[in-house]
Write a protein that binds this DNA or RNA. Structure first.
Length: 261
DNA sequence: GCGACAG
DNA sequence: ATCTTGTCGC
């Protein structure tokens, strides 16, 4: 996997204005509709491959990417590729974090580490799940969208917090497992007001008890719709809040970080 | 000036 | 994101 659009590779030395202008270009090139190389219904983390009949399609390869940091100036990115819940490839990469974290410009801080890790994979994932936002972004060009458009590969963004946009209805203190609430575009987002730019998705929830789990914020990165993005994320979850690709990438990033320290 | 903000 | 062990609750 390599950049199909080199001009979109994040350049941390750009001025803030130039970064935002590039994001507008990326959003224009982004496809927020399904243009996949697989059937979302074939996505699974069920490792029961022996029981799959010959008429069933080969499960697609889903990759997860996550970052950890080495001090303040280096980012470690880890990518894990799975097929039917089985890890078939892994890779890590380290890149300089040339700029600080700035809401809305995350891809210019971590994007190159992510691209390097993905390029180090020996397989080309059918879909890549990236930690962070995709279309749920001021200029509809979050990290997942930036990476997806640069590689011209399907990506989805999975964030633990909402960057912008407005939930169709106020988020309750506790959403039941499986619940989905649309996140709409508002004055802070370049998309027409009311456009569904993602979903709050409750991947896991306790049935009883005082504490509750917060939802995930899923948004399309590139070549996928908001609805399908949630469908796929749901199919990759396996009892934990985070999708399996993300969980495994998270663990690998922590391990890689420890090794580099 | 105030508010709000992925990782 | 990161600094960080045990601990409270189910």
């Amino acid at each position: 996997m390599e950049p199909v659009r080199p001009a979109f590779v994040p350049d941390p030395s750009l001025s803030r204005e130039a970064m935002e202008a590039l994001q507008d270009e990326i959003a224009t090139a982004a496809v927020f509709d399904d243009d996949l190389t697989f059937d979302p219904g074939d996505v699974t983390v069920d490792r029961d491959g022996d029981q799959r009949s010959l008429v069933d399609a080969e499960p697609p390869v889903i990759a997860g990417v996550d970052q950890a940091f080495l001090g303040d100036d280096r980012a470690v990115s880890a990518a894990v590729a799975l097929r039917a819940g089985e890890v078939i490839d892994e890779a890590t990469a380290v890149a300089e974090t040339e700029i600080p974290y700035i809401p809305g410009l995350l891809s210019f801080r971590e994007g190159n580490a992510v691209l390097a890790a993905l390029q180090s994979l020996s397989v080309t994932p059918d879909l890549t799940v990236i930690d962070g936002s995709g279309r749920i972004h001021f200029r509809q060009a979050g990290l997942a969208t930036h990476v997806g458009v640069t590689l011209d590969r399907p990506t989805v963004g999975v964030a633990k917090n909402l960057l912008c946009g407005t939930p169709r209805e106020p988020l309750p203190d506790r959403l039941p497992e499986g619940a989905r609430i649309a996140i709409k575009s508002d004055a802070d987002v370049t998309a027409p007001d009311g456009t569904v730019i993602g979903y709050a998705y409750q991947s896991r929830q306790y049935d009883r008890g005082s504490t509750s789990i917060n939802p995930l914020y899923v948004s399309p990165g590139h070549r996928i719709s908001a609805e399908t993005a949630v469908d796929v994320v749901e199919r990759t979850c396996d009892g934990y809040k985070l999708p399996e690709p993300t969980r495994l990438a998270d663990a690998l990033a922590d391990k890689a970080k420890a090794d580099f320290e």
